[in-house]
Amino acid sequence: MAKKEYTFEEICREIRQKKFLPVYFLMGEEAFFMDQITDLIIENALDESERDFNQIILYGADTDVATIINAARRFPMMSKYQLVVVREAQMLKNIEELSFYVKKPLESTILVINHKYKTLDRRKSLASAVEKVGVLFESKKVPDYKLPGFITSYLQQRGIGIDPKAAQMLSDFLGNDLNKLTKELEKLNLLLSTQTKRITPELVEQNIGISKEYNNFELIKAIATKDVLKANRIAQHFDKNPKNNPIQMTLPVIFNYFMNLLICYYTPDKSDNSLMQALGLKGTFQLKDYQLGMKNYSAMKVFNLIADIRTCDAASKGINNNSASPGELLKELLYRILH
Score class of each variant (00 low, 15 high):
E107A: 06
L106V: 04
L174D: 04
N114W: 06
D144R: 13
D163Y: 09
A167Q: 03
Q168L: 06
I110G: 01
N114Q: 12
E138A: 14
I95A: 10
E131I: 07
K132R: 13
S108L: 06
P105C: 08
E138L: 11
L147E: 10
V133Q: 04
L106I: 01
R158N: 11
F173Q: 02
A89C: 12
R123P: 09
L136R: 10
A127K: 09
I110R: 01
L120S: 13
K141S: 04
G175I: 11
S139C: 08
G175E: 14
G175R: 13
L98M: 08
E88I: 13
R123A: 05
R158L: 10
Q157T: 04
E88R: 15
S125D: 07
K104N: 15
L155H: 01
K165F: 10
M91A: 15
L170K: 04
A129R: 10
L106G: 01
V102K: 15
A167T: 00
F137I: 07
A167F: 08
M169S: 03
L126D: 08
G149H: 02
V135N: 01
D144V: 10
V112F: 02
K118Q: 11
L126P: 12
Q168T: 01
H115W: 03
L147W: 03
K124H: 04
Y145G: 00
S171M: 12
K116S: 06
K141V: 11
N94S: 12
L155I: 05
F137C: 08
A127Q: 07
Q157I: 04
E138R: 15
A167D: 04
E131A: 13
V135Q: 06
Y154N: 06
L174Q: 00
E107M: 06
L106M: 13
Y145T: 10
